[in-house]
Design a protein around this nucleic acid. Structure first.
Lengths: 161, 161
DNA sequence: TATTGTTATACTCTATAACTATA
DNA sequence: TATAGTTATAGAGTATAACAATA
């Protein structure tokens, strides 16, 4: 209907709206990309495995870092401590993780996944990776570059502290 | 303290946790990157200009697409219609946008920014782009590649509908 | 029947404040 | 004093359901 000719590279993926200035805003680009990955996560993990995004991330980080503490998780994810507590409560109630008292520091907790938790994390990762691969149609090279650039962005957090 | 040698490329930017399997999950990489862009947005726009992320995006999309409707905004942002209504209420109350009845379709509304709204959107974009540029230290080439790859990811939304 | 926009409502996510125990 | 973890609470973000007006 619109008679105005617009560069098709500057339209929103849905709704066909011009977004020229927003294309220069990385935060916006990330939000648009996450619409897609959120949908994938929801279809592949959230509903079938009953794991929410943060729960999946926390479970996987614990699986890869046995002996870690809630405080370190909070820093890694930029989430406040009270949220971590509630999150761990849920995972522990489902017997996906275990909290032990630390030997060195009696304030601190030592986290580990149960066998059930490790299995669930592995299954979830497998499903997400497979689904992202088939839905996104990025070449392995593009995937690698994207991961590297996003990590570089994420690391800007260090210098601003 | 840790005696185990870990590939430093596979650690979370903060908290120093191993994240090898999560590195393969694009949704996680996006979330980590957004911690940084969210902080930039908060410092540069949210507090000083009193504009929340979605408000900024909506305002800018309206500025670039005069004559658009709330329904198209909802599709572009994957946000439900009731949220768009509340969002537009706030922006209209601050006299940043105007809602007019459509001539063709009397159910529909025609959106446009006010002069004040256009100015605010321009100022916000300028501040974000400048801050992202200085904080992220990506080369122009990296910026371009990142934008292109994220857009490609965002466009996967089309094919899954 | 389907779509546009609205109201009312509820749920999730995440934050702050205040507290206890330990370092 | 500072840190680890908890509890209670509040706010922002976004969803569904039900509705009115129009196509």
């Amino acid at each position: 209907m619109s008679s105005k000719s617009v560069n098709p590279l500057e339209l929103t993926p849905a709704g066909r709206l011009g977004e020229a200035s927003l294309r220069r805003v990385l935060g916006y680009q990330l939000a648009q990309a996450r619409i897609v990955t959120d949908a994938i996560f929801d279809a592949e993990v959230a509903s079938p495995l009953q794991l929410r995004p943060v729960e999946y991330t926390v479970l996987t980080l614990i699986a890869e870092n046995p002996g870690g503490s809630p405080a370190r998780l909070a820093r890694a994810l930029a989430v406040t401590a009270p949220n971590i507590t509630a999150l761990l409560d849920r995972l522990e109630a489902r017997e996906l993780i275990e909290r032990k008292a630390s030997d060195n520091d009696r304030r601190s907790q030592v986290l580990a996944v149960t066998r059930k938790g490790a299995e669930l994390a592995r299954k979830a990762t497998h499903r997400i990776v497979a689904a992202e691969h088939s839905a996104l149609s990025l070449t392995p090279g593009e995937q690698a570059i994207l991961t590297e650039l996003l990590h570089k962005v994420a690391c800007a957090r260090d210098s601003s502290r």
